[in-house]
């Protein structure tokens, strides 16, 4: 299909785009701005992990068992400084946390993105066409949502086995239905609006109406859900890893690090669990704060 957009072909006068207005509104809460900064910093740090981490915690040749359980700030026998100590394998905690964070974000974002794509396709199809198509899709969604997410994930992982890819598949499976339901709700409301009638009246084809008119107007609530779901996915991954069915022990995520350190907490070796725990908490808190602010701004009932 030809792209019939004619953007940019007309002289631009000064335009306040909906997006620019949105950014200005977002920035009026300093807490939300701080949370966003934290999220951006954390994502950047995790993306740069291979370059900024003192050590590659996945490379067993770099680990020395003699350096295990060093307290934060202690030096190894070779004089290497371990700012946040080491774990029972002699891993530098700081490096392990950078890599763990990277893995957590990777799992959270990829699973959310895939689930989002599936959910959008299912939800918007259900809403636009209605009738039997709607019924079939939504029964499936209801069924999916009536089981606790953790249970479904546990069963899937029990069948599939460990591995980052398996965790992502499990997370997609438990998440897509939320998106399908959210976008269907929004799309049902938007579909009633007269601009959809106007587009039909102009004899535009269904796929064009769905993707160019309906979908962009259903995205705002989805952005909120997706943001908060990333946090949810990260904590779900941490839970699964903590329970020992998530990522393999050789590539620890934050959840696995916490799990590893858990058994030493009572013997005073708090740092192995506590630092990854704090990082996980900070990550999830910051993402949720961003999500809450987005929700406030995008909630039509709160708008004047």
């Amino acid at each position: 299909m030809a792209d019939v957009s004619i953007k940019g072909t007309l002289p631009r006068d000064q335009v306040e785009t909906p997006f620019a207005r949105f950014v200005a509104d977002y920035c009026s809460s300093w807490l939300a701005v701080a949370a966003l900064v934290v999220v951006v910093v954390l994502i950047t740090l995790s993306a740069l992990a291979p370059w900024i981490a003192p050590q590659n915690p996945y490379d067993l040749t770099q680990l020395s068992i003699f350096d295990n359980m060093l307290a934060p700030g202690e030096r190894s026998m070779e004089g290497k400084l371990y700012l946040l100590g080491t774990d029972d394998q002699g891993r530098d905690m700081l490096s392990a946390m950078f890599y763990g964070l990277k893995l957590s974000f990777f799992v959270g974002i990829v699973s959310t993105a895939v689930a989002l794509a599936i959910g959008i396709a299912a939800g918007i199809t259900a809403a636009y066409f209605g009738g039997r198509i709607d019924t079939v899709i939504m029964r499936f969604v209801d069924l999916q949502l009536s089981f606790p997410a953790i249970l479904i994930a546990l069963i899937l992982l029990a069948l599939l086995g460990k591995g980052v890819d398996k965790v992502i598949i499990a997370l997609v499976a438990v998440q897509w239905a939320y998106y399908a339901r959210t976008i269907r709700g929004g799309a049902l409301v938007e579909r009633q609006r007269e601009y959809i009638d106007a587009a039909r009246n102009l004899a535009l084809p269904s796929h064009r109406i769905i993707f160019r008119h309906l979908l962009p107007n259903c995205l705002p609530p989805l952005v909120v859900v997706a943001t908060i779901q990333v946090a949810h996915a990260i904590s779900l991954e941490a839970t699964l890893s903590f329970l020992g069915v998530g990522v393999p022990i050789t590539e620890p995520s934050l959840g696995l690090l916490i799990s590893n350190g858990y058994k030493y907490i009572l013997s005073g070796k708090y740092w192995i669990s506590v630092y990854p725990g704090l990082l996980l908490l900070l990550t999830i808190l910051a993402i949720n704060l961003v999500g809450d602010r987005l929700r406030d701004l995008l909630n039509p009932r709160l708008k004047a």
């Binding site: 019939v4 957009s5 004619i6 953007k7 072909t9 007309l10 909906p18 609006r193 007269e194 601009y195 009638d197 106007a198 587009a199 102009l202 004899a203 535009l204 064009r208 160019r212 008119h213 962009p216 107007n217």
Partner: peptide, 21 residues
């Protein structure tokens, strides 16, 4: 208000259908 797609510029609102057809 509700009969105009809030995410399209006026140029696209008016120009989309004639261009498409």
């Amino acid at each position: 208000m509700s009969s105009l797609n809030p995410r399209l510029r006026i140029a696209d609102i008016i120009g989309e259908a004639p261009l498409f057809h």
